[in-house]
C-alpha cells in the first residue's frame, strides 16, 4: 500500500501520574520529508518518539504508520519503522556483522537478501572496517553508527532518530547529516535534537516542543524567509522620527540603534541610505535581521511567552 502520509499522529497525550509529559500533539509526516523535532531537555521529544514507535502506549490519541494503526496492528505497522533511540540498542557481545544480520532477520529480510542489506547499511554508515569487531569494543561514535545502521538495514519507509549525532565528532556529524539527507530521498525521517544548526542543516520542516506541547511548526523555507524581514541600523545623529518610504514601523533600542519593519513586499534599504546621506544622519551600519530559528526557539522555550499562555 502506498500512502503519501507516512505518520499520522492525532491528539497524542501521555501522562505519568499527575504529570503530563506530552499533551495533545498532532504530527504528520509526508513521504520524502525530514521533520526536525526541537525542544529543550525534558520537553517530551523522546516520549513522543517512543509513542510513535509503539514502545510506549499513549494515554490518549492514535498513531498511524503508513496508514496502519499501531495500537490495532502493531506487527504490521512496525514493519515500516526504523528507530534509533537515545541509547543505541546494540548488543556489545556480538560483532557488527552478526548484529546487523540479526536485525535484518528480525525485520523479515529474507536470508538471500540479508547479506546485501547488511553490506549496504554498513556502507551508508561507514562501518566496513569494523565489520568483524565486537560492538562492545567500538568507540561511542561507532556504536552510534551501528545504531543508525540498525535503523536503516531493512530499508523502512519511516526512520525515527532520537538525537542521532550525540557523541560524534564534528566530521562524523557532517557524515551523518549527509547520510540523513541522502536517506530522505527514499525515506521519511523524523529527527530530534536540541542542536539548532543540525535541524537547520538537514530538516525540511521544524516542530518545536516545549513542556509537552507543540509551540511552533513551520517549514524551514518559511523560517528562512522570515530571516530577511527586519532591518537593524546604527546612526551617529539619529533624527526624532524617520520618514522613509517603505518603512512600516520603527523601534528604537537606544544609543542610535534602530530596528525597522518594512512594509510587506518592499525593500527600503536604498531609500534609507539615500535619506541618511541627504539629512546627515550618519549611517554607520545597516543589516537585515529576522527571527532566526534560534530566536524563535529561545523566545518560545524560555519562560512564559504569550504563545505559551495561549497554548495553556
Amino acid at each position: 500500500m502506498e500512502h503519501d502520509i507516512l505518520i499520522e499522529a492525532r491528539g497524542l497525550t501521555r501522562r505519568y501520574g499527575p504529570n503530563v509529559a506530552v499533551h495533545n500533539i498532532d504530527l504528520t509526516l509526508r513521504r520524502g520529508e525530514i521533520l526536525g523535532l526541537l525542544g529543550p531537555n525534558g520537553a517530551g521529544k523522546s516520549t513522543t518518539m517512543k509513542m510513535l514507535t509503539g514502545n510506549l502506549a499513549p494515554t490518549g490519541g492514535s498513531v498511524k504508520i503508513n496508514g496502519i494503526d499501531i495500537a490495532l496492528e502493531p506487527k504490521k505497522a512496525k514493519q515500516s519503522l526504523g528507530y534509533l533511540p537515545e541509547l543505541p540498542p546494540v548488543h556489545p557481545e556480538v560483532t557488527v556483522d552478526e548484529y546487523l544480520d540479526f536485525v535484518a532477520a528480525l525485520h523479515g529480510v529474507k536470508k538471500a537478501d540479508r547479506k546485501a542489506a547488511v553490506a549496504k547499511a554498513k556502507q551508508s554508515c561507514g562501518l566496513h572496517e569494523v565489520s568483524r569487531r565486537l560492538i562492545g569494543n567500538l568507540s561511542k561514535g561507532f556504536q552510534q553508527r551501528v545504531g543508525l545502521a540498525q535503523a536503516i538495514v531493512h530499508q523502512p519507509p519511516v526512520i525515527i532518530l532520537d538525537e542521532p549525532t550525540v557523541g560524534l565528532d564534528p566530521i562524523q556529524i557532517r557524515e551523518i547529516r549527509s547520510l540523513i539527507a541522502a536517506l530522505a530521498q527514499n525515506h521519511s525521517v523524523i529527527l530530534s535534537s536540541h542542536i539548532l544548526p543540525e535541524i537547520q542543516a538537514v530538516c525540511s520542516r521544524v516542530m518545536i516542543v516545549h513542556r509537552g506541547r507543540v509551540v511552533f511548526q513551520d517549514s524551514m523555507a518559511a523560517v528562512n524567509a522570515q530571516n530577511a524581514s527586519r532591518l537593524a541600523a546604527i546612526f551617529r545623529n539619529a533624527p526624532k522620527s524617520f520618514v522613509v518610504p517603505g518603512i512600516a514601523s520603527t523601534q528604537s533600542l537606544g544609543e542610535g540603534r534602530f530596528v525597522f519593519t518594512p512594509e510587506a513586499g518592499t525593500d527600503p534599504r536604498e531609500a534609507l541610505i539615500a535619506a541618511s546621506v541627504a539629512n546627515g544622519w550618519g549611517l554607520l551600519e545597516l543589516k537585515t535581521e529576522g527571527r532566526t530559528l534560534e530566536e524563535i526557539f529561545v523566545s518560545l522555550t524560555s519562560g512564559e511567552t504569550p504563545e505559551m499562555k495561549e497554548a495553556a
Partner: peptide
C-alpha cells in the same frame, strides 16, 4: 539496562 530491549520491541515481533 542497556536500552537494547527497544530493538526487539520496535521490531515487528509480538
Amino acid at each position: 539496562k542497556s536500552g537494547s530491549l527497544t530493538l526487539l520491541t520496535t521490531a515487528p515481533a509480538s
